[in-house]
Nucleic acid binder design. Sequence first.
DNA 1: CTGAAAGCGCTAACAT
DNA 2: ATGTTAGCGCTTTCAG
Lengths: 346, 346
Amino acid sequence: MDEKASVTIHDIARELKISASTVSRALNDNPRISQATKDKIKSLALKMGYQPNIIASNLRNQKTNTIGIVVPLINRHFFSSFISGVEDVAFASGYNVIISQSNDLLEKEKKIVQSLFSNRVDGLIASLSMQTNEFDHFQLFTNKNIPLVFFDRVVPELEAHKIVVDDFAVGFKATQHLIDQGYRRIAHLAGPTVLNTYHDRMEGYKEALRKNNLTVEDELIIFNRLTRMDGQEAIKQLLALPHPPDAVFCGNDTSALSMMVYMKKIGIRIPEDFGLIGFSNEPFSEVVTPSISTLQQPAFEMGLKAAELLIREIETKNKTQNYQTITMPTELVIRESSLRNAPRSA
Amino acid sequence: MDEKASVTIHDIARELKISASTVSRALNDNPRISQATKDKIKSLALKMGYQPNIIASNLRNQKTNTIGIVVPLINRHFFSSFISGVEDVAFASGYNVIISQSNDLLEKEKKIVQSLFSNRVDGLIASLSMQTNEFDHFQLFTNKNIPLVFFDRVVPELEAHKIVVDDFAVGFKATQHLIDQGYRRIAHLAGPTVLNTYHDRMEGYKEALRKNNLTVEDELIIFNRLTRMDGQEAIKQLLALPHPPDAVFCGNDTSALSMMVYMKKIGIRIPEDFGLIGFSNEPFSEVVTPSISTLQQPAFEMGLKAAELLIREIETKNKTQNYQTITMPTELVIRESSLRNAPRSA
DNA sequence: CTGAAAGCGCTAACAT
DNA sequence: ATGTTAGCGCTTTCAG
């Protein structure tokens, strides 16, 4: 039942009474090897069940053909779609992908980045954890000029490529929509504003209020981590206000959902009494009742772009030094939870 | 702006005028090195920004401290929870995890397994794609006695460890529940029955009917891939029958949801006119209206178990040769979509 | 077109 | 307690 060590190019070489370098070249389709010997070698390799040892190859080549991804949670539709986009491009270009999740924990993010570096990934694609407020761990990559692309949750001070959406415009658009629907006292549930995404969405929200001569009130802006629990706490807090809001723009769909569940329970009608809009178009937002209006980001396409950009960087190392920021379009998905009037002209 | 090659143990050794092996030993806390030199070496390593080259270490040690996971889709709550379970155990035991998704495609699954093998993972945890009807690609692992654990979607003919739930019992339980609720003509939407999960669920369904003196009718059992689209097609087909069913037990929540959406649209009331039960407790099933009854599998715990089993195998290589099958408990989650009567005594 | 030899960075006998 | 040496499996000059 036991087995001997793996078959290596040396085993093949010995069998064929040729040198290991010839075997290596043949298997890599080096043009300097005659078709005849290539055929001979390849068929023997097959017969002997040869499997290249990528580790050895990687060590020798100083290249792993692997790209690392760090996301907060693979469990979110936005992130898993993004990952699928990355994988498509990566596999088509001959790269493997190592996926890791930080669980929104800074310490875990650090360990992961460390580990991906030690494993010598050729490039890294990352979206920051909610806790991330320092960035030294990424210097491992920047110091050694290993390509690095951030997406979604990025910070301005990072000198790297970035794939984002225009969160300011999105925040504005969402808020304007609520205003158009006749809501007048609009609250906002924001995530940690160290992260540009949450910061910009909030600023867009404020700007929309101002443009419409509505006042921005601190008590209507709540900051937390946007979990289900956080959403419920936030809506309780808002409704307990002397002068409660009549709508909320939530930083994600999860918190919007939990607000909705709570309000249904206590008899607040959506959208008649209260307007609600989420963010990121999680699959559930379409199927709950009432369905939740939200903002759709092109997650898959962002993944494609991120991978393309990263791989181009990897393969033209040290050519460019100017960091690109690619802003992708978003779409306002209007559903029942915010639709009190007939839809306005687009 | 440019940088030189990485600092290696040789650089440290040269600086300190000692040998590379001493450096290596010190960094690995080998007891044969004096504390004084250890301190000296470690602090210099830190100062020089030394980062171990795991690739070289892996090559030398013939061990990567990495375990591979293949799942159909990381995007499903069941799988992502499972993965989190694996990660918890793996990280605690000093292993990295490489996650890959087959997208339910046999060809992609083969490539992934191949690639994980070439990357010399120390062990593999896998759940089969819906298309998987041959298993030769896993022989790479079995032939070389590399530990292998299957979970959820497994097949009997594979000689390997398995983490499963008792799908037969679960199918029975779900069907019995519908019968208890007074439904009498119960259909079943099944996935590919090459996979034990779907096969066993279906057999459990049949057995429950028989035990209750209900006849098993072929026209009430539909096979497909359980996508949203598949669910809709299936319910149309069932409702078009001369003698349509009054309830369905669906192989997953996704198809149950799409059935529900369709039936709501055409005015069939759930659960009054029609009973529905899904499988796997996706988060949305709780929040849709009516909420969907379903079966809950202990995904996270299954991940823990799988990782524990795999790592034990890795670390006691060739000790055991008898394959374990661990069956985990499931829970019937009764919600609105199947609850026509008052709940029976548990 | 093919071979010999060196080396990627690390570890582990086997020295001393 | 530390050094010497060899080698993990592969690729790639350099030679012919």
